[in-house]
Amino acid sequence: MIEVKNLKKTFASGDTQVHAVNDISFSVADGQFASIIGRSGSGKSTLLSLLGALEKPTSGSISVGDQDITKLHDHALISYRAHKIGFVFQGYNLVPNLTALENVMLPMEFAGVPKKDRLERAKALLSRVGLSDDQQLRKPARLSGGQQQRVAIARALSNKPKLILADEPTGNLDSQTGEMIFELLHELAKTENTTIVTVTHDLSIAGKTDKTFRLNDGKLVKK
């Protein structure tokens, strides 16, 4: 269960203040697939950053499970990101000089998973997202966009997180590939009982999720 209460994030840009996230409250149950839609600049990415503890809110609280992550110290935040969260980005954000396999093992290394388990799990995950043995040993530059995003999904799942946060994961892909990626995310989340919050501008995708939030100028608009 994710519970967000009166969440605010204000950026100061010069003299003016930007209320990127402006007093938002909502909740998502465990295992649910929620989507966030809204125009560019409406605060979607900022909201995901707050949920993933990449950014600290100006005010408000975020409870994930029984933890209020806004009260965590830096060290605990790093551990939270490593163990509880999986990120999928629009630009894939794989480490370019590591192979697909090594990219998937990376979060496990940060989470302190034993070396042998890392390799086994990374191979299993990459097979599940559909990468052949040969593709698993390639560096990102030698994989297609869709394949890279599959690697990114495998990486996000590597530490069995409670919550996967995806920021326009299909934004750089053609609609057919995008749909496949979404189905993959959905299916994996169901089998692992992982909660997913994804940002999308594709309304057909948003329509298939359990819950949809619409943001407008940092505020939640009732649908």
Binding site: L54, I78, R81, F87, N93, V95, L106
Partner: peptide, 9 residues
């Protein structure tokens, strides 16, 4: 940024 986001200190 990516390393930090996926749990590196």
């Amino acid at each position: 940024g990516v390393l930090k986001a996926i749990g590196a200190s």
